[in-house]
Nucleic acid binder design. Structure first.
Lengths: 200, 200, 200, 200
DNA sequence: ACATAATCGAGACGGTACGTCCCGTCTTGTG
DNA sequence: CACAAGACGGGACGTACCGTCTCGATTATGT
């Protein structure tokens, strides 16, 4: 009995939390700013999440993982062999999707915040890793495993290591000088595919 | 005329600033905490740096770049052929030195802080990039160029791209799951050297 | 709309202000000490009075004037003549009431503070004069005018001057040596009544 | 041995102390402001007076008492009777001299400061009383005693009480409304001389 | 219909952190 | 040594912000 809670407030608060997290990080985030951004009274926030940790944890849990690229799903057998370089194309498509997802959603801006506060709040980054990073790495690893199966990639390939070197320039685009930078996906893929060593 | 300033205070304040920056980031850093960490009155800090920006900028400027590894300097011709794989060894040594420098000094803990606040304070991250990141990338690029000259590496290698894929797992070790993790330098170098594609 | 202000805080703040004013004067008074004395947060004080001047001005305005002595009111005609020396008795009662009021309330301790800072803050002293001093002088002047009307006092008496000489030892009891001092009301009244000159 | 102290600094410091005392009172006075007003380094002040109390005490001790009025000295017998009202004239001259001295020197501005802080620093006010107030009262009392001796004043006069009522309007001129005010010495003297009561 | 009870926005409230300012102590170089 | 200039640590105060609380208004629900 009594006035029921308005479910739309939940969504507004979560969205406001993600925006505040992207703008200020966990420490800089305050329940007051979340309430203000959501156009909601402070009591309405505290009635649902009693602590900042609980609120942010739930907000991170809603971060959608990158959607599975259509081209990687479906086949994998390559019985017809219509595509001469399916692995290279799949990698390019997957990495481009990751980059686009990173730049479009708040996840790309939230990650460095959580990474910076990993020492003081390791659980938050861990939650982010499971929700966003792990699925993204899985997309790449899937392509790599597919390539191994099809014989295009080395059989002794360490998938995790290869994922590391492929995802690095995507996940941390700020590492290079800003003048260079964008649109290097093709170069990264080719560099890693062929290797930098002189062919024997 | 008057009592001269004590130069030791400058050093103590800069050191305290770096520690505070590593612990709290730029926004979370307060002049009061710096003074307290340095065992110094607040007026002593403000007498030298009137704003937080000026103090942090100067502090970042003192961050020592990683020292040039001895093995990369010296020779490079390899005329006698005593070293069968000089490029691989040089890369391993350089990357290990970078990782060690990252973990030992505060630079490794300061970087994610500055990266997280790059949107609001791009100049600070830019300063850090020039002071720490650029020299570190130069170490790797030097080795790569040396390898190209000696014929061990492809002549058409894009040095910047190769640096990206090599430095990624070192600069951002937290990207992988913590259970995996450490000591993958050999794997990264070998993966990039040989390439992941099936040898033709 | 919103939570309404608690009126009891106003009273507590005003009372604390008067105490602080008596203890430290206007310059020495700080909003922080007022808040502390009132058992109130600083924001609660600033929400009501944005400046120290406004707060102290309002506090002084609440200083109650000395209440009108009962014996001076009421009659004045003296038709029955039952009281052979009504003016002397009335003066004694009035001056005693003033002294008692001065010593009991904070007004007596606040006055020298405001007087000392009259140069820098003349408005505060002026407010005090209107609230406390003027009513007190009026009590005496009333008695004097009544005495003139009844024929007990000189018709050509300058009421203001007579008030001056009568109120002086009451308002500034510290002027005399502390060893002498107290309880001289009778002497003052008789001295002023009879004059110090040899009767003609 | 060594450089001797400059005696002129002592005078400058004392003068600066009195000015600071008049402007800010004892609590508001700081050694720094004294040194600044005196055009002297802080160490020069502390070399001579180690505490603020010692400095202010010495400064008050230098406050000159009001000089004895010429008309009160000299004769006093009045055997020839050339002066029909010597007491009235002497009182007027003495009170005028006191008022002039009060307004001209810093003593008049220092007194309310010390009076306001009498509770916290009774010794300072006591020192001031002995140095300034007591001599001033003595000037009046001398005239009164002379008048008693000459028969012009009542033989049973309480000199202290009469001094109280006479000096009040001079010592505390701010008690009256500022619109009235100045030049009331004649009125005060006549009022006290003749008394306010109807002549019998 | 309508009383009930919980939700909701607004804002008061106490507490805390921080930058500014000021003071007394000290440490220089100069006379 | 005296003297000024000024560095130094410490502390007080006003500002701003946050989490908790209290209010009046609103809104479904159950009788």
């Amino acid at each position: 009995v009594g006035r029921p809670r308005d479910r739309r407030r939940d969504d507004a608060i979560i969205a406001a939390t993600l925006r505040a997290l992207a703008d200020s990080g966990f420490t800089g985030l305050s329940m007051e700013s979340v309430a203000s951004r959501a156009g909601v009274g402070k009591a309405t926030v505290y009635r649902r999440w009693s602590t900042k940790e609980a609120l942010v944890t739930d907000a991170i849990a809603t971060l959608a993982a990158v959607e599975r690229t259509v081209s990687t799903t479906g086949d994998g057998d390559g019985v017809d062999g219509v595509d001469p370089e399916p692995v290279r194309e799949c990698l390019l498509a997957t990495l481009a999707a990751l980059r686009e997802h990173n730049e479009r959603t708040l996840a790309g801006r939230i990650m460095p915040r959580l990474l910076a506060e990993r020492e003081s709040h390791p659980d938050l980054f861990e939650s982010y890793r499971n929700r966003v990073i792990a699925p993204a790495r899985d997309r790449i690893a899937d392509v790599l495993r597919q390539g191994i199966a099809s014989g295009e990639l080395r059989a002794d390939l360490d998938v995790e290591l290869a994922t590391d070197v492929l995802i690095g320039p995507i996940a941390y685009p700020d590492h290079r000088s800003p003048t260079d930078g964008v649109g290097c996906i093709d170069g990264v893929v080719d560099t890693v595919l062929r290797g930098i060593g002189q062919a024997p």
